[in-house]
Design a protein around this nucleic acid. Structure first.
Lengths: 180, 180
DNA sequence: CGTTCACTATGAACTCAGTTTATAGTCGCG
DNA sequence: CGCGACTATAAACTGAGTTCATAGTGAACG
């Protein structure tokens, strides 16, 4: 969902063609891993089919032609709507970490080993990000902070879960039995 | 990705048919929002086409026939692999909240208003979850904790970002100018 | 001088997850 | 008997993202 809004947002400043947008999106929103060109073109096609952008002109420059797109009134509305409404809450209650712990318990594997290995992977990633944060410009630094806060949240949850594995095990066992 | 593994995990205990799996998945992994039946059947079809499950038998019971699926050796391998490897780190560096703040700055809207409204939505959601956590059984309580930790992480990041909006604005402005 | 490389620019075709919609059988109820 | 509730599945579609194909220009190279 977010790349659509990113593209709309960039088109607000004026019409652009896909190739250009790709670089802008990379610069502003994806400083770590660039988006694929094809994704931008696909996104533009979808936005066009919903009437949120429209073909503005076809420029012939050096090299192949450029198809320049402009944001429509509809597109502007959608963008403002998205900015003004709070984000839909993530379905945190479907967390992959939780799935792992439950499956580990159900399949009788060593839960603490699994929790430990997740913890180590998290700590390693946090060290990377801390380094990045120090060396990078403000926007990337902020993104790194975002990731760090969430990795820390995962860690806290892992501690809590590790402490409650026995509790959890009993609860899951119980509900295994009472099913049709 | 996670629903595939959830289904595989449940099939470890013995062959099941889709309808049954749907309820088990709901019970163990999605206590908040149930998954659609069709998604389970689609998942089973995909798992089958990759050789991770196989049709075990077609039972005729009261009502329509039941297609019972069993996990294969391949499926078991995949499951163990997934449990033993740490989860792929989430692409946190593409956070929707970040996109919003950047777009708010680029389009000259009131950033603090937007940040405030996100904060309020988060606080409201946290109150709901805290209530849920008190009344619910252990597994759901743990999921609520997971969500709470992450909402708190978002809040911390929002504070930090609010404090650095000016910094961010300057940085973004600069890079607007130096592009081809 | 041709050919190979790098860069600009786009789109078709495919995969994969998830949703909407359709189908079909059984059971019980009024 | 007709209708709604429950069991059970699948086809068809949507939307995001990836892989692969194409096509033009300019510069470098032997």
């Amino acid at each position: 969902m977010s790349i659509q809004h990113a593209v709309l947002g960039l088109l607000q400043e004026g019409p652009r063609h896909g190739y250009d947008l790709k670089h802008l999106v990379d610069r502003y929103f994806a400083p770590d891993r660039p988006v694929a060109f094809a994704q931008i073109y696909a996104t533009l096609a979808r936005l066009e089919s919903r009437g949120r952008v429209a073909l503005d002109a076809v420029e012939r420059a050096e090299g192949p032609d450029r198809r320049r797109y402009a944001i429509t009134e509809d597109g502007r509305h959608e963008l403002v709507r998205w900015l003004d409404e709070p984000l839909a809450p993530e379905p945190h209650l479907q967390a992959a970490l939780f799935t792992k712990v439950v499956l580990a318990i159900l399949s009788g594997r060593d839960v603490t080993a699994i929790v430990d290995s997740e913890r180590h992977a998290h700590l390693a990633r946090m060290r990377e990000l801390t380094a990045l944060r120090r060396s990078a410009p403000v926007p990337i630094g902020l993104l790194a902070d975002y990731a760090l806060f969430h990795l820390e949240a995962d860690l806290r949850w892992l501690e809590l879960t590790a402490a409650r594995v026995d509790d959890l095990r009993t609860n899951l066992k119980l509900s295994t039995e009472d099913h049709p």
